[in-house]
């Protein structure tokens, strides 16, 4: 297992994703002799996981079962322990494409936070790219280093524990893309520019508030960034379900009844009123209506 390479069998030391049904997942570190409690009962790693194939069905002690999935950045995003607010897959997908990330890209990111976006970036830039990520919170920085190691992607990433607004990214002239998810991105725009390649590159800033966006856009324009675009992308989930709709009873149809049936039951005595079953989707009662504004810009050649 690795977050950047598929393998077929579950091995000791892997991080496996246990799918408990109904889009509920949890991450498990596979270890000989270890056990994991789920609401379906216990999973014994040595017998239930190690040596099994990813995607297999595991029957737990209480007779319930779960599926064990190969880790991906997307599954990690929904399973990871939150230390901060995180970016979700919908925004991550947009960021990845609009920053033009691909194998070999060199990316700067700040802050690292819980590492949700970091894992997705690493997946995309592997095997030859590199991520320089900056997190000013020491504990979070240490934790994420540990995770990168466990997930076997640490060779692709450098974590720096410093303040990006004051000290920058710790690299200059190397980045193809920069991502900012910090409270005052406008203070880091200069450092972002310095971190980017002389030949130019792409920048993205994620901010929940429009005032932050305005200051960022202004800073970007002042620093000579071009193609400054702000957008917002929202995921809409459609719940598929059958719906049964009743048809009203209009009573006996005079034209048809006169020609066909002379003996007609009174309307009130009609058996079950007809109904129609349709397959449709319903929107969730509530949905996330805002995550953040994504501001993209191009650094021209300097």
């Amino acid at each position: 297992m690795s977050f950047i390479e598929y393998s077929n069998l579950i091995q000791d030391g892997d991080v496996a994703i246990v799918h408990l049904g109904h889009n509920s997942v949890t991450a498990v570190k596979v270890q000989h002799g270890a056990q994991t409690q789920t609401r379906f009962g216990v999973i014994r790693h040595s017998t239930d996981l190690i040596g099994q194939r990813y995607g297999c069905k595991v029957t737990c002690s209480k007779g319930g079962w779960v599926h064990v999935l190969h880790p991906t950045p997307e599954l990690w995003t929904v399973a990871l322990p939150h230390r901060t607010q995180i970016l979700y897959t919908t925004d991550i997908a947009m960021v990845t494409m609009m920053l033009e990330l691909k194998p070999g890209s060199v990316v700067c990111e700040s802050g690292t936070g819980s590492g949700s976006l970091s894992h997705a970036i690493l997946r995309t830039i592997a095997p030859s790219g590199h991520l320089h990520t900056v997190e000013f919170h020491q504990q979070r920085a240490e934790k994420v280093v540990e995770e990168f190691k466990e997930h076997r992607v640490d060779h692709l990433v450098t974590v720096r524990n410093q303040d990006v607004c004051k000290d920058g990214f710790g690299v200059t002239g190397v980045a193809d893309a920069v991502f900012l998810d910090i409270p005052s991105p406008w203070e880091a725009v200069g450092h972002a520019k310095a971190a980017m390649k002389k030949h130019g590159g792409r920048l993205c800033s994620f901010s929940p508030c429009i005032e932050q966006v305005q200051r960022t856009c202004q800073a970007l324009t002042e620093r000579g960034f071009e193609e400054v675009r702000t957008l917002e992308v929202l995921l809409r989930v459609h719940n598929v379900r059958p719906v049964t709709l009743q048809l009203p009873d209009f009573g006996p149809d005079s034209s048809s009844s006169s020609s066909q049936a002379t003996e007609e039951a009174p309307p009130s005595a009609a058996p079950n009123p007809a109904s129609l079953k349709i397959k449709t989707t319903t929107p969730p009662r509530e949905m996330p209506g805002h995550t953040g504004y994504l501001t993209f810009a191009t650094k021209p050649r300097t």
Partner: peptide, 8 residues
Amino acid sequence: LTDTWLRH
């Protein structure tokens, strides 16, 4: 089953 909504 999803779709995305995009606003500039």
